[in-house]
Design a protein around this nucleic acid. Structure first.
Length: 493
RNA sequence: GGUCGCGUGGCCGAGGGGCUAGGCACAGCUCUGCAAAAGCUGCUACUGCGGUUCGAAUCCGCACGCGACCUCCA
């Protein structure tokens, strides 16, 4: 048995549509950028999935030994609202509704976002830059785009000249679009009359007098365009070319396509070497989205207080549920699937609880290095968490068998098993025992122990009816008794 | 309408030319006073129709069904 090898990592590059070996630009450093939330409302579970997917990428890169700079932005400059409130800033709109300052809205939902990230044990990025904090950089980028000839001013706004850019560069490469097809498919959008081509997009937008979030610029009072912040901030913190850019599938076009165009126009470099796109969370086969009314917030999820939820589910259950599918596949939410995940996670965590009490033996009844290698291989194959979880359940079987005395492991193999299970389950998958149930104080335990003792006495005199009655009544209260060789243990249902 | 993708067992979900994925559920067995837990065993599937191949769930074509993007969206 040779020592398990940690690399190399292969990831599906959505730019080339191929699985490629990941080779960082400047090892051991890795630059990772992920498009963060727009903080004008609560995040829903679909948003969580994307951040969880890239949390896993971040954790795995870190596990492989890379020094990762993970940048995930906060979009706190509103994007334009499409139909009803033409030209109005999303955040400003919300602010008027709630009689709050725009930055108050931003703060409120940023806090909420952070709470959700913590709830799901999603790690903080290395840098979390805000769009409003990088106006200088964004204005600078607009200037560079104008200087390169791919941006033009019109009535206080600045637009990106897509057809001109496409003459010399591959606009549409990422999303598989073609200029002529796009042109035949255009709809009327805001600012149409100022644009030279319907494909052009705003990189700086003139603010109307009533607009709340606006800043001075060489083109007058305004605010940065839809796609600019990510380009400006990724360039600032990761360089003109960096390793990995992630985001939800729905951002591929136009957002990421525009990012590429902006960077190429401004600095002459394709910004990203590996593009990764997480797929959507669906409900009854349909994308979870605010507009569909099929989204629920983490709070509704936890309490089960939503018409789509039969009951509440813990954050860790959701995390496990999501990790059981590949990040690039759509994942359908259903109560049946959640309940299956709940039970599966419980079995996994119960085995983790046994780890400390396992006793080593004289021989090896299981090949731990082989298991370890299979775990690494799964993750190195495009972050295949479902396959790794499958392997971890092999670990669960070994743990339980060792605990039952049916399988023996030498001291060194046992240490390897513990290290492997802990690093994969806790560090890589980010699964933790839920703390909620641990709030019992000593009195509670003492009380239950008293019942356990009464039941033991009943059992000792073969009064099983009385013993079972105690167990049943406690069960009705949510206290589960388990008879083991070492005595009776209890837990909450 | 255009582009891309998907269709796997009772359910969820990997895989993706020959090799048991895994989880949940269900059934049987072992262990238990009985439960529970755990272990073992069983249930062995790839939308349909053609084609390529010694061999196809996996490749190709067509059909049907579904979805995403084309507009803010994770």
């Amino acid at each position: 048995m040779s020592e398990p090898k940690k690399g190399p990592l292969y990831i599906s590059n959505t730019l080339t549509r191929k699985k490629e070996e990941f080779v960082p630009l400047r090892p051991p450093h890795v630059g990772l950028y992920v498009c963060g939330p727009t903080v004008y409302s609560d995040v829903h579970l679909g948003n969580v999935r994307t951040f969880l997917s890239f949390d896993t990428v971040y954790r795995w890169l870190t596990f492989l030994g890379y020094k990762v700079r993970y940048v995930r932005n906060i979009t706190d400059v509103g994007h334009l609202v499409g139909d009803v409130d033409e030209g109005e800033d999303k955040i400003a709109k919300r602010a008027r509704l709630e009689q709050l300052e725009p930055m108050e809205i931003v703060q409120k939902y940023t806090n909420g976002f952070h709470d959700v990230m913590r709830l799901f044990n999603i790690l903080s990025p290395s840098i979390e830059p805000t769009a409003t904090g990088h106006l200088i950089e964004q204005i600078g980028m607009v200037e560079r785009i104008i200087a390169s000839g791919y941006g033009y001013e019109a009535n206080g706004s600045v637009y990106f000249d897509v057809p001109r850019f496409a003459e010399k560069h591959a606009y549409g490469e990422l999303s598989g679009r073609r200029i002529d097809e796009l042109l035949s498919n255009t709809r009327d959008t805001e600012g149409m009359e100022e644009k030279r081509s319907p494909l052009d997009f705003a990189i700086w937008k003139k603010a109307e007098p009533q607009h709340l979030m606006k800043w001075p610029s060489p083109w007058g009072e305004g605010f940065p365009g839809w796609h600019l912040e990510c380009s400006a901030m990724s360039t600032k913190y990761l360089g003109q070319t960096f390793d990995i850019h992630g985001g939800g599938m729905d951002l591929k076009f136009p957002h990421h396509e525009c990012e590429i165009a902006q960077s190429v126009a401004a600095d002459g470099h394709a910004p990203v070497r590996y593009w990764m796109h997480g797929n959507m969370l669906t409900v009854n086969g349909r994308k979870m989205a605010k507009s569909e009314g099929n989204g629920f917030t983490p709070e509704e999820l936890l309490t089960g207080n939503h018409k789509l939820l039969e009951k509440g589910y813990s954050a860790m259950t959701v995390r496990f549920f999501m990790l059981q599918s590949h990040y690039a596949s759509t994942l359908d939410f259903s109560n049946a699937a959640m309940q299956a995940a709940e039970r599966g996670l419980e079995r996994l965590m119960a085995a983790m609880d046994l780890l400390d009490q396992l006793k080593p033996g004289a021989s090896d009844g299981a090949d731990i290095p082989a298991l370890e290698q299979r775990c690494y291989d799964a993750m190195n194959d495009d972050i295949n968490t479902p396959v790794m979880i499958g392997e971890l359940f092999e670990g669960v079987r070994i743990i339980n068998s060792v605990n039952d005395g049916k399988v023996s492991l030498t001291p060194s193999s046992l240490v390897k098993l513990k290290d492997l299970m802990r690093s994969m389950v806790h560090d890589v998958l980010g699964l933790q025992r839920e703390a909620a149930k641990a709030s019992d104080d000593g009195a509670m335990d003492g009380l239950v122990q008293e019942f356990i003792r009464m039941r033991a006495e009943a059992k000792a005199r073969k009064d099983y009816a009385a013993g079972d009655a105690i167990r049943d009544r406690l069960a009705a209260l949510g206290i589960i008794l388990k008879d083991t060789k070492e005595g009776t243990t209890w837990s909450r249902a």
